[in-house]
Design a binder for these strands. Sequence first.
DNA 1: GCTCATTTCAAACGATTGTTTGAAATTTGC
DNA 2: GCAAATTTCAAACAATCGTTTGAAATGAGC
Lengths: 244, 244
Amino acid sequence: MASSNVQRLARAAENSAEKSAEPADTKSRILDAAEELFMEHGFEATSLRLITTAAAVNLAAVNYHFGSKEELFQAVLTRRLDPMNRDRMQLLSSYEAAAGGKPLTCEKILAAMFIPAMKLARDHEQGGKNFLRLLGRAYADPAPFIREFLSNQYSEMIARFRTAFSNALPHVPREELSWRLHYVMGALSYTLAGADVLKVFGQYHLDEATNDELLLRRLAPFLAAGLRAPIPAEDDGYLQFQEA
Amino acid sequence: MASSNVQRLARAAENSAEKSAEPADTKSRILDAAEELFMEHGFEATSLRLITTAAAVNLAAVNYHFGSKEELFQAVLTRRLDPMNRDRMQLLSSYEAAAGGKPLTCEKILAAMFIPAMKLARDHEQGGKNFLRLLGRAYADPAPFIREFLSNQYSEMIARFRTAFSNALPHVPREELSWRLHYVMGALSYTLAGADVLKVFGQYHLDEATNDELLLRRLAPFLAAGLRAPIPAEDDGYLQFQEA
DNA sequence: GCTCATTTCAAACGATTGTTTGAAATTTGC
DNA sequence: GCAAATTTCAAACAATCGTTTGAAATGAGC
């Protein structure tokens, strides 16, 4: 029969998975394939036919289970972004409770942001790493539906950490702190998005071997020092425009 | 005749340009329209028909003048990236010459990176700002031809600044410095890429009013403090994995 | 073992994509 | 003002896109 051929393909795709733990569930298989392919080629450049072929499911399965390509993309993000941000806020709360009213250090707050991200990266062996790179790319995607989605997904967590940093850095004005948090998110997302940019710096000898703890153990001191930096005076002229 | 209709459309598009300084040159008109639309929708989501309609030129003009859509994209980038990186290196050289052998401060080196970028943003009134946002997005684009192009375009400039930072920060190990430069590029590109992420932080009152000097006068001290941060000890345990 | 709801399937839908073509229009060199 | 090269044009190219369709296959409840 014609269908047995497709079923063989499906089982072959299943067995070729890293840990042979790939679920037979169609929905999950689509999510896994979409996560990897969206990460690799971006949203627009990834066709549904590419995804459904990689997942060894029928083309129409995406529209049946998710409704549309955009909703599939949101499902890919929310599957792991939602628990991660929940973990971040829980971890921050537990740190605050342990500190007993005293403000946390910047390093501690940054740890509450980073640890859930790293836990995600190691939990699902290949999936986690892919997801963080996908997330870093979604930050820079111009598509309105992506920007809206991320904004909604992050607003609660960001507000929570903003006040934590505000307590940790009472000498930093509110507006200045907003900018610095912006820089923190930029550096973090760049680092999580993968080693692509490192090639620009000629640092290919670090790539896969460097584990995530080490990676962020470097990032946290860098960012903490920046967050604590003295506020620049109004008349600091070192950045004035001048021709060479 | 049929062609006079199209010519009227072309002149209308010319006159509707901001400063009415839009050149009649087909090639430049395509570049300007492409720059804005690529910035707005990304590379894959921007069709050639959208570009040629906005530029009021024939569809086939892109392939005639640039060869392909990919080559058009590279031309959009190189038109402004090339002079900017040349300016950066010249400015750094002039700073080094003025210092007379003594190593520069981090702030001074960062200024050599930022000032040409800001000059670009203000020179071409609307085009410059668009371009920096486009550039910030290109950094995160997964397309191989974009990554290769950027890598080639940046390698010389990055190598130049790497040794400058290395002289300015003799106590920072080479590998650590590579990572910190990575973070610097991340924060910088995020900031240049525009205020999209700021909405996440609820900082919509800054957006257009804040000029570029102010923006980067905040960023440079933040990054300089991070670059100078003490090297974390091996046994620093504050970022250890632990469950809430 | 029948029934009904859920899921999967091959096939086709209309629309849009980047690119090519060859003739018309325009500009350039003399 | 003619001839040759450059540029613009409308039209069509084959390919791919996301989505829809209605029938076949599979599952659960009784």
